[in-house]
Nucleic acid binder design. Structure first.
Lengths: 337, 337
DNA sequence: CTGAAAGCGCTTACAG
DNA sequence: CTGAAAGCGCTTACAG
């Protein structure tokens, strides 16, 4: 029946050993409240020597805090999304750890947020980071009615007011990449796109359209293939695009892009000789492709770091910006030569 | 300065509202201790109606438990590993959630386990699941000296005694796949292999060798390329293997396999016409490859579920098996036709 | 500058 | 069957 965990030394033990009160020990550790320099140093020395670590749980209970944040990860995903989430997590963990916070993981499917609900009901966290949002988002509804501090990675639909969002500037990025391609005299651009329920898809689409407007060109709606979210649909779209003589295929994300490339390979269509290809996202999956793929470049870890820092500020009651947009790079490679 | 979280209803509130003691309320909820049926039902009804949820943190403090488990995820990984970790996580979360436990995530690099150390020092979890182990493993050393209950996903080196391990039967699986290939009259098998510091690599190697022994064939050490853990090394190994007329390339994991396939593509070597290919692991990355790749098939989610269940038993002081081996399948596809 | 005491929201012997 | 009280390990007014 032994739990295995050693009986731990508590604040009472060090107080007794030093002949001071628990209050004093607590003050020495937290640095709050007046305390004599000498006393504080004695306490600190003892703590150091005996390797005392405060019980964060108890501390949290006394302060009505948990020193945990929840990050919710989508339960449905494409392989290529995974590296993005992972990178974000690295960033979040780096900041959280440095502030003595830990990460509670919640996996939520679009129609099942029970894991998140339980965590909130159980008072296990001080705030939440949403790694993906939908145009209609149950998670946001829930968190807002429960009044839980949260931030989203990626932008949220305009339906939601007052949501703190940390995102890359997808619209500008897509606009810039599209513009560059248009400038290269590829006029027949086929756009093959991801899940329209993801807010980011909308931003990308907007950037794409704005590029056309800016360049004074009109886009061919027959070359727009949205919501092609599986291999079969992508294959059909690619064939259709080729039939219509598209000279460039723009992929709205890397899941789409890897499917497009696969289809082209099967069809023995050469990139960039027969058709150019570019992606509105960047990922490790495409990193090693032959030929290398023109794409945007975003720093997902940075996104995680900023999101975490913002959430922590928020839980402390600090003022935070509603929308933070991080920069991007356009990376031109062989696939659009 | 508003924390945002509503003031929550506590056990004291419901006790007062019902004119009973906190003890009684507590008993009604936990089901422990004697309590009148009618009283219990009154309490339960009130709780239900007012949507009272016990504060798990406080409960944990009183019981010296946290209702959290830590899962440590490797900080260095190949893209193809990610789906494995993700699947495991799904399994872990499913079981943990059903037992009202949550997952605290720790990301550890081989030489930096500070995140895990902090979580343990802070008493934040009741036990730990290690998602990857090394032949020399700091994490295990640490957890053992701290006397923290833990289980590993994957086997651990024989250097460590008494470690609870949940694994697929890699050795048998590799032995079986290798045997099948040998039976198909491919005698010149090139083995291109992953990180030798991972315990699983050793198991795979053993299975490979045993297959040769069983079939009464001698293996060609010149066709064994171990620790080829980047694109450059894999390329060299593939070329060397082709030079030596290998008729099948066996990849020790999918990271290697995707690199091998890439190299073969670049060299315009056809699979399976010019050389056969098979992998000692299965992943979503290879799922869509053309041609389809012969590989082993393991259920990572199941692994996570069993690991979590075992850890929970362990923290409760129940007897658990030191080593649990889950079954596998051999999936023959076009690449070894 | 320091300490006794109450409190965070639960559980659990102990007594009745 | 039920309750008063002590305890889990901290923090924090309040008083001195």
């Amino acid at each position: 029946m032994d739990k295995g965990l050693e009986k731990n030394i508590t604040i009472a033990d060090v107080a007794e050993a030093l002949g001071v009160s628990k209050t004093t020990v607590s003050r020495a550790i937290s640095g709050k409240g007046r305390i004599g320099r000498e006393t504080r140093e004695r306490v600190l020395a003892y703590i150091e020597e005996h390797d005392y670590k405060p019980n964060v749980i108890a501390k949290g209970l006394a302060q009505s805090k948990t020193y945990n944040i929840c990050v919710v990860m989508p339960g449905e995903y494409d392989v290529v999304d995974l590296t993005f989430f992972q990178e974000c997590l690295f960033g979040i963990q780096e900041i959280a750890g440095s502030m003595e916070y830990d990460i509670l993981l919640s996996i939520c499917r679009k129609n099942d947020i029970s894991s998140l609900e339980r965590i909130i009901a159980n008072h296990k966290v001080d705030g939440v980071i949403l790694m993906r949002t939908f145009v209609e988002d149950e998670q946001i509804d829930f968190l807002q009615t429960k009044n839980v501090p949260f931030v989203t990675i990626g932008s949220t639909s305009a339906n939601y007011k007052g949501v703190i969002q940390i995102d890359h500037n997808h619209k500008s990025a897509c606009k810039e990449l599209t513009s560059i391609i248009l400038m290269k005299q590829m006029d027949k651009i086929a756009l093959i796109g991801g899940n329209e329920e993801h807010v980011v898809t909308q931003s990308r689409l907007r950037g794409f359209r704005e590029a056309y407007a800016k360049m004074g060109k009109t886009l061919d709606e027959d070359l727009m293939f949205l919501s092609q979210d599986n291999q079969v649909l992508v294959e059909k779209a690619v064939k259709e695009a080729l039939n219509r003589q598209a000279d460039c295929i723009l992929c709205m994300d890397d899941a789409v892009c890897s499917r497009v490339l696969k289809t082209l390979r099967q069809q023995h269509v050469k990139v960039p000789e027969d058709v150019r290809v570019a992606s509105f996202y960047n990922s490790m999956v495409l990193e090693n492709n032959v030929p290398s793929i023109t794409s945007l470049s975003f720093d997902a870890k940075e996104l995680g770091m900023v999101a975490c820092r913002t959430l922590l500020d928020l839980t402390e009651g600090l003022e935070v910006k509603e929308r933070t947009l991080l920069p991007y790079e356009v990376v031109l490679k062989e696939s659009t030569k």
